[in-house]
Structure formats: structure tokens, C-alpha cells
Computed example of a mutant assay.
Amino acid sequence: MGERALDGSRVAVVGASGALGSLIAHELSGRGARLLLVGRDADRLAALGIDAPLIVADVGDAAAGDAIAEAARAAYGGLDGLVNAAGVVAFGSLEETPDEVVEELFLTNVVGPLFLLRRLLPLLRESQGFVVQLSAVVAERPLPPMAAYSASKAALSAVATSLRTELRRARVTVHDVRPPHTETGLADRPLAGEAPRLPEGLAPEAVARRVVDAVAAGEQDLAAADFV
């Protein structure tokens, strides 16, 4: 897939109320994209100051994709891109990780994105659009003590790899993005456990810019090493 013009494109940013999602939304908006902002907190979405439809939804709710599709048709007549920037993290050995935490990790990081894609791919096929899946470096290099989290991000990357071939004839571009540790504050808000000692992470503004650059350039596989 080649370069993509973002000016005028219609893009849904899921997790737009989060630290990295909000920066990606601003980066896209600054390049002329017309957005749909999706998140769990209406006030935080409104505080972004971007003129765009706001959709309050949880990525783990199968109905979220239906709401996004309906809003995209109503506001813009379709959809050119989906950025999935929602995600949760947990720390601790596997045997110390509660069942409900494992379930939440996979619901938010894997199952929810699959729900979204099932409902939004028809629109993206129509526009020959793009999907950005924000995975993480642990998809490449699983780390202790975060076996469940690493597995969920690896699964998300597997979805992207499979879809890239599945959607090739439809000319839908699938971007698998696996940034290194980034200073978003997510590690300070785990579902369970305590973050291990981590090196200083990348600036989230730089990561957001690199992600949007990759979309514009048609880079489909963005490994951790591509951020340094």
C-alpha cells in the first residue's frame, strides 16, 4: 500500500480520551482529518477541544462498533480509518493474577478490537481505508511479570498480521504498531499488580507523531525499533 492523504479523511479514534489516543487525535486533526472521538468519559472527550462527534462507549461492548458505524454514516457518509488506541495493563506473576483481570485484559486488548473490526470493516472496505492497532513492545519481547498482558498484545498483533493478508484485495491497509515503553502514565494505573522498574519511556507526543507519519507513509509494520 502506498502513501495516504489524511486531509479530509474520516477517522474514528477509539480510546481518544487516553493519553496516547488524545495525542493521536490531535495529530490527525492537525493534518486535516475529520474525526469521531470514542471513549468512556464524555467530559475528557469534550476537553480535547476538537470539533468532532463524541461517542461514549467501552471498547469491550460489542455495541460500540455499531454506534461508531452509525455516527460515521450520519456525520460523514462513511469511514476512512479506525485507530484503536484503547488498552489496559496489569502486572504480577500469572498465578497471582486474578481470573477477572485476565478476562479484562483480553476483553479490552483483543476481544473488543475484534468486535469493532467486525462492525467497521464493511465501511473501511467501501473507502479502501485503514486500521491502526496499537499493540506494544511486549508483543515482540514478552516480559515478566506480565505474561497475561504480553499475551494480549501479541494476540492483537496476530490479528493485524492476519487481516493484512485477508484485506489485501480490498485494499484496506492494516498497521500493526508496537511502540516501546512510553510515558503515558498507563503503568501507574494497572488493573492489578505493580509495575516493575522500567527505563525512562519515550515522549508520548513523539510516539503519536510517528504513528500518524506511518499511516501517511503506508508503513504497515511499525516495530519497537522503528521508534528510536
Rank of each mutant, 00 (worst) to 15 (best):
L23V: 02
A42F: 04
A195N: 13
L134G: 01
N109L: 07
L116C: 09
S17V: 04
G185R: 13
E219P: 01
E140A: 04
V13E: 08
D66P: 00
A187N: 14
F91P: 07
D51N: 13
A225T: 13
G185D: 12
A69T: 06
G30K: 12
A192S: 14
N109I: 07
G218H: 09
L116R: 05
V159A: 03
E104H: 13
G92T: 12
D188I: 00
I24T: 09
E194G: 02
L82K: 06
A69P: 08
R209K: 14
E103W: 06
R168Y: 12
V177N: 08
T97P: 01
V56C: 03
L143K: 13
E3A: 12
G218P: 06
R178T: 04
E96H: 14
G21A: 05
D188P: 00
T108H: 09
D176S: 13
A57H: 08
D43E: 15
G87P: 10
V11H: 06
L45R: 07
V88A: 12
R168S: 12
V211K: 03
L117D: 02
P196D: 07
I68W: 04
F130T: 03
L143G: 05
S150E: 11
D80Q: 06
T173V: 08
A74W: 05
E194H: 10
P190Q: 04
V13F: 10
A63K: 13
S22P: 05
V132K: 03
R210F: 02
D61V: 03
G201L: 07
F91Y: 15
K153D: 06
L54Q: 12
L202R: 15
A90H: 09
M1D: 10
Q220I: 00
S17D: 15
S17H: 06
R189W: 00
G49A: 02
R168E: 14
T173M: 11
Y149V: 01
P53N: 11
P179T: 08
A151I: 02
E100W: 14
A170I: 00
L222F: 01
S22M: 05
A147F: 07
V102K: 05
V215S: 00
F130S: 03
K153M: 07
L163Q: 04
V88T: 14
L35V: 11
L116E: 07
V132L: 05
D226W: 08
